[in-house]
Design a protein around this nucleic acid. Structure first.
Lengths: 256, 256
DNA sequence: ACAAAAGTGTTATCCTTACACCCATGT
DNA sequence: ACATGGGTGTAAGGATAACACTTTTGT
């Protein structure tokens, strides 16, 4: 593992990459504990970062984002959307921290030369099913895992701001983004769908009105009841009617 | 003029610019004929382009956009907002067209070297008062002027798509963008404000309901009547109450 | 029987929409 | 007086929000 990593570092060849331009992915998952973000921890460094990468010569920027996402999660064809490009000079460079951390071989190595240039980064947000994802570290990272949005560790550079911008985007665009169909399992209860919306909007919704509104939109299929063994009425399970869902998504699933 | 231009071309020094990254501005104005876009025509070339530029080493990307806008319009502190980054490999390169047009000195000149690299461009949209703007060509451009959005000339590269993306953004975000206060003159009639909204939304709005809705929001000051000399009731002139307007803008000027 | 949560119903209120009506202006 | 467009009023319909009521489940 260490050898493999060292080899990768020595063999790092930036000559096929677009210089100065990176992408960072805010990969969002959801479970009963709330929204989660996929983060990486760099070897030998204190802070965590978002999964990111660079753009190949001859590679579309969007394709690079798809590639990064697949490499880190194993998921293909995810929901992925560019949301903002961060172009400040002082985004918190690699320079000081990386070199001081003595994590990488020699100041003059190609990878140090590469990493310490100024980067303009484009943020992508992705909505994925946490349980189907397979978080996978790359050669520079020690760990790769889901962290709750409400209890994120310290992130390096401006990555905290990138996350906040992504969350603001999803909140503003909630009626035009396929949050339910991407973040929930195949079958779910109405309560689970409501909790998802409440997690994103960060406010309580009225239960009975939520139920009626969603059902009136008509993109849910009702299935058998879910017998939880608890002492109350069993809720129905629902699934999305993909066609109707996507059709309605285009004109907005009016909410507030 | 020619000498000055040739000097500028010879003296072009890209060593203080961020390579591979450009910005393009969709500068939007409005008059009684509808929405307009500021476009440039390159010397010796058929197509028009959007005002754009590059980012200085040590210059924030947003600052570069402010600089470009001021250089082309003379306007300081405009409304300016990043809306999308275009990262396809094939955005329509300079390569073929520019060299064939024989517009620039020699294939190996610094400026040709610079222009024919792959660029990822970030689009900014700006809302300005057409009558206060002073369209100003730069050393590479022959003309710089306002063209009606409904009758744009052919644009080079992917600039048509950039404009369309910008217009889609303003249409989607109309309730959260200061369109009225930036696109209209100091004083205006209710009909003029309505026509502006109709131009952006590309659909008719009901006159009396528009009036009541706007007035209910309470950010307009009513002034004297505008006597046009026409044979009907004279409309009031209005102006924006900047404080209330900006305050309401934050939470959206609910429309549809 | 009881508690708890799911599902449905009811009501008041607000916003939108469509259209009617009067008002001011110049011919 | 008349045509024209500005300004205001009104009534129907739809959406929302708050809360009441009924149903189902396991103890």
């Amino acid at each position: 593992m260490v050898n493999q990593s060292q080899d990768a570092l020595k063999n790092f060849d930036p000559s096929f990459l677009v210089p100065g331009q990176s992408i960072d992915c805010v990969i969002i998952g959801y479970n009963e504990m709330g929204l989660h973000i996929l983060v990486l921890k760099w070897k030998g460094m204190a802070g965590w970062i978002l999964p990111g990468g660079f753009i190949g010569i001859g590679e579309d920027m969007d394709a690079a984002a798809v590639r990064v996402l697949e490499e880190r999660t194993g998921l293909k064809l995810p929901y992925l959307k560019q949301f903002h490009t961060f172009g400040k000079v002082d985004r918190g460079n690699f320079n000081a921290e990386l070199v001081e951390a003595d994590m990488l071989p020699g100041r003059s190595s190609p990878i140090i030369q590469w990493l310490t240039q100024r980067f303009i980064t484009t943020g992508y947000l992705s909505l994925v099913n946490m349980k189907e994802s397979m978080p996978t570290p790359d050669f520079l990272t020690e760990r790769c895992l889901w962290k709750p949005l409400n209890d994120l560790p310290d992130l390096m550079f401006d990555h905290r701001q990138i996350v906040q911008t992504a969350i603001a985007e999803i909140r503003n665009q909630i009626n035009y983004m396929p949050v339910g169909i991407n973040l929930l399992p195949e079958k779910f209860t109405m309560r689970e769908l409501q909790s998802l919306y409440e997690s994103i909007l960060e406010r309580a919704l009225e239960r009975s009105n939520f139920q009626k509104k969603i059902l009136r939109l008509g993109y849910l299929n009702r299935h058998e009841k879910k017998m939880t063994g608890e002492a109350h009425k069993a809720p129905f399970l629902y699934s999305f009617d993909g066609d109707k869902y996507n059709q309605l998504l285009g004109q907005g699933l009016g909410f507030l």
